[in-house]
Nucleic acid binder design. Structure first.
Lengths: 208, 208
DNA sequence: ACGTATACTGATTCACCAGTCAGTAAGAAG
DNA sequence: CTTCTTACTGACTGGTGAATCAGTATACGT
């Protein structure tokens, strides 16, 4: 004799709630260890409710990742729009990409996503769009810098791919093997690579 | 009334067999989807036998990854020793790192390992040692090239970390999003980065 | 007030798979 | 040959967690 005890809210509102809770659990426990029951517990609702709104766990994760990726991208783009100077924009983007105590969970999430993406076309698509998004923004900033004479590059898009990929590879080291590489070392490496790539000195580039 | 029907072999031999079978299954099905039963099936033995030699699945994976990492590293080092010229050595290493139809499975394996390493200190250790190993070899080759005047770099180890991390980041794109980046594009990116980093022209560096 | 669409419950089902264990035989040692 | 160690079997157990579903209450429209 099951009986609902909780507040009824509209389906759209509930979906938003559930996605937020899913993100919270995924960041805390990791994508791999996330159980539908955890998400339900987070909202103090039944597991049945989660499945009422999302047919499968896979669908739930997909929605949450899509949402998170879009949010991350729009946050960077918004922050970039606030700055006029390409130099300041590049500085900001590099800082925003670096792992940090506050962002380590998010890095871990996307590293898990890479593994998931190997097996799952939908997830692969989401990860691809996020990567493309970052590269686009980097490329725009670099192109603007080339126009203003602050940087030079004969191919801003290619330079953006190299910078982004370097950030991915280095970030992986920092998150996985913090003993081997610190955030400060990573920062120095990226700044050095940006110097070489864009013929430009970023501030605060301590030697490794 | 269980009864053994198969050839008895020594424990050491069997362990080697099982590790090889585990690697095969992991490459084919992915680390994530590997079941102990698959490994047993691969050798046409019982699941009990696997657990007789490896107490847990985790122990089995650990042994297999340790083995695989060591093998990969010694293969590169051997190939490097065959070449006297630092330029040829660097060429070879970059080619060996690039994903290819033959190596895609191995890339997928290590990408899965990154995710696993997030949660597992032992696996993290193995991945760390492999990465350190590659960087060591790169650093030695670069240092040799600096001595011979072929490259210049004021910090071969740092340059090696940047090259290796770039390779990881780009390889990820190729394996995950082959539509976005091809092996040829990756190759061009790496060669371009090596040029910038080492002040040196590698052969065959087509523009992207 | 009444009916109906819809949000929600939670016990249950179902499948999966690592790890166990009692029993069995090969082959080395004496 | 007998004994004893060691490799090996395969049915079974136990834990896990996604997904189901019959039943229940709420809110909204009429």
């Amino acid at each position: 004799m099951p009986r609902p005890t909780h507040t009824r809210i509209s389906a759209v509102e509930r979906r938003v709630q559930i996605i937020a809770a899913t993100r919270k659990v995924a960041l805390a426990r990791g994508l791999h260890d996330l159980r539908v029951a955890d998400v339900a517990a987070e909202l103090a609702v039944s597991t049945g409710l989660i499945h009422y709104h999302f047919a499968t766990k896979h669908e739930l994760l997909e929605a949450m990742l899509r949402d998170t990726a879009a949010e991350e991208l729009s946050a960077v783009m918004l922050a970039i729009a606030d700055r006029a100077d390409p130099t300041a924009q590049l500085e900001y983007m590099i800082d925003a990409y670096l792992p940090s105590p506050r962002r380590d969970q998010s890095w871990a999430l996307w590293i898990d996503v890479w593994g998931e993406a190997l097996r799952d076309p939908e997830i692969r698509r989401i990860s691809e769009e996020l990567d493309d998004g970052w590269v686009d923004v980097f490329a725009q900033v670099i192109a603007a810098g080339v126009d203003s004479g602050a940087f030079h590059s004969d191919d801003p898009v290619a330079a953006a791919w190299r910078l982004c990929s370097l950030l991915d590879g280095l970030g992986l080291q920092v998150v996985l093997h913090s003993r081997t590489m610190s955030r400060a070392q990573m920062s120095a490496h990226v700044r050095r690579a940006a110097e070489l790539e864009l013929g430009y000195q970023l501030v605060g580039n301590a030697r490794v």
